[in-house]
Computed example of a mutant assay.
Amino acid sequence: MTSAGRWFHRPVDRPAARIRLVGLPYAGGGAAVFRTWTEALAPDVEPVWVRLPGRESRLRETPLSDWDALVGAFGRALMRHVPSPYVLFGHSMGGMLAYETATAALSRPPERVVISACRAPDVARALPAIHRLPGPEFAAALRDLGGAPEEVLASPGLFRLLEPALRADVRLAETWPAHPPRPVPVPVTAVWGDADQVAPRSAVRAWRHLASGGFRGHEVTGGHFFLSDPSAGVVDLVNRELGAAG
């Protein structure tokens, strides 16, 4: 598989697209997190779903649990394989990666960053750390959070297979930010769920203090994983934001 194929899943070929949407999933997720989005996006938007090491077709690769290593590797792949103009969308831990990437020294920055269900870096984490817990306790904590499919948590063999990526991502989320907060040089759109207790409204709206390029905030219906609920209307919201970008 090529480097582009490892990092990016392009479900439809839209070479004449006006703009590209680069989707970064939540902890433990892959490109499949966005599988229902493709047909719902505007026809002039090319979907580019991110697949990090250690999941889906990259299951045999070692997951990255260090921010500098992950941002460096992802940023190089982004600059090599995703033409401008593009927008970064990240949910939860994916929002952290979108922010870290957008504030890195990219040769071609995004038009906008859409950060979903993710606290600002200068807001304290709401929940205790779990990434060092033993396997059964770690699985139980993920179940309480709603952060992994029940079929994974209910199958010891499947959980052991996916546990390295889950732990790596949760460790990233719980050790973030790795550096003092930096302003975002492009416009920021922040999205929060009205029932999210992991990244509540005040924690997500705090991005406005770092959005030197402009800020817009939106509330949707749902808890922390509203991304998976079509009734939350996130794709429609993203289409509107993309209409103002590029």
Rank of each mutant, 00 (worst) to 15 (best):
V50S: 14
V33N: 09
A69R: 14
R60Y: 11
G75F: 08
S92L: 06
T38V: 15
A69W: 02
V45F: 11
L97S: 03
A73T: 05
L52Q: 11
V48I: 12
A73R: 15
M96F: 05
L97C: 06
D68I: 01
V33K: 02
G72E: 13
V82D: 11
L59C: 03
P63N: 11
V82P: 01
D68W: 02
L97A: 08
T38A: 13
F34C: 01
P83C: 08
P53W: 01
T36A: 15
L88Y: 02
L52W: 05
S92P: 05
T38K: 01
V45T: 05
E56W: 04
E56M: 10
E61D: 06
E39M: 12
H91S: 00
R80I: 06
W37K: 00
V50M: 11
G95M: 10
L78C: 05
V45N: 07
G90W: 05
P43W: 00
A40Y: 04
P53E: 01
L64E: 06
G95P: 01
F74E: 07
T62N: 10
V50P: 08
R35C: 11
D66C: 08
T38P: 09
L97T: 07
L52C: 09
S65F: 12
M79C: 14
A77Q: 03
A73P: 10
V87L: 00
P43M: 01
V45M: 12
V71L: 05
V45W: 10
G72S: 12
R76L: 13
S57W: 15
P53I: 01
R76Y: 00
